Amino acid sequence: MSLVDLVSGYERAAGFDVPGAYAGVVLDHFKFGDVTAYLTGQPDSAYWANRGVIALLGCDCGEVGCWPLESQVLMGDDVVTWRGFGQPFRPQRDYGSFGPFTFRRSQYEGAAREAAAVVAERGSL
Rank of each mutant, 00 (worst) to 15 (best):
M1F: 03
M1D: 13
V4D: 04
V4K: 10
L6T: 15
V7L: 03
V7E: 03
V7T: 05
S8E: 12
G9N: 13
G9Q: 14
Y10L: 12
Y10R: 11
R12H: 09
R12E: 09
A13W: 05
A14Y: 10
A14G: 06
G15R: 04
G15M: 05
F16P: 01
D17F: 02
D17T: 13
D17I: 11
V18Q: 15
P19W: 14
A21M: 10
A21F: 15
A21D: 13
G24C: 05
V26A: 15
V26I: 12
L27F: 07
D28C: 13
D28H: 02
D28A: 15
H29I: 02
H29Q: 15
H29M: 07
H29N: 11
K31I: 05
K31D: 11
F32G: 06
F32Q: 11
G33C: 13
V35G: 02
T36M: 11
Y38F: 13
Y38N: 09
T40S: 08
T40V: 08
Q42N: 14
P43H: 00
S45E: 12
S45L: 14
A46W: 06
Y47K: 06
Y47M: 12
Y47T: 05
Y47N: 12
Y47Q: 13
W48F: 14
W48S: 02
W48L: 04
N50D: 10
R51L: 08
R51K: 13
V53G: 01
I54D: 00
I54F: 00
I54Y: 00
A55H: 02
A55Y: 03
L56G: 12
L56A: 07
L57G: 06
G58A: 09
G58I: 06
G58M: 08
D60R: 13
D60C: 14
D60I: 10
D60L: 11
C61W: 09
C61G: 10
G65M: 09
C66S: 05
C66A: 11
P68K: 06
P68Q: 09
P68R: 04
L69S: 03
L69I: 11
E70V: 05
S71W: 05
Q72V: 01
Q72I: 04
D78G: 14
D78I: 15
D78R: 13
V79D: 09
T81H: 04
W82V: 00
W82S: 01
R83T: 00
F85N: 00
G86M: 02
G86N: 07
G86C: 08
Q87L: 09
P88E: 07
F89Y: 12
F89G: 15
R90D: 02
R90C: 09
P91F: 02
P91M: 10
R93C: 07
D94I: 12
D94N: 14
D94Y: 09
D94S: 13
G96P: 07
S97V: 14
S97W: 08
F98P: 09
P100S: 02
P100H: 01
F101M: 05
T102A: 13
T102L: 12
F103L: 04
F103G: 04
F103Q: 04
R104G: 15
R104H: 15
S106W: 07
Y108H: 06
Y108C: 04
Y108E: 00
E109W: 12
E109S: 15
A111V: 03
A112I: 10
R113Y: 03
E114F: 11
A115H: 10
A116D: 06
A116P: 12
V118T: 06
V119T: 08
A120H: 06
A120T: 10
E121R: 10
G123R: 08
S124A: 13
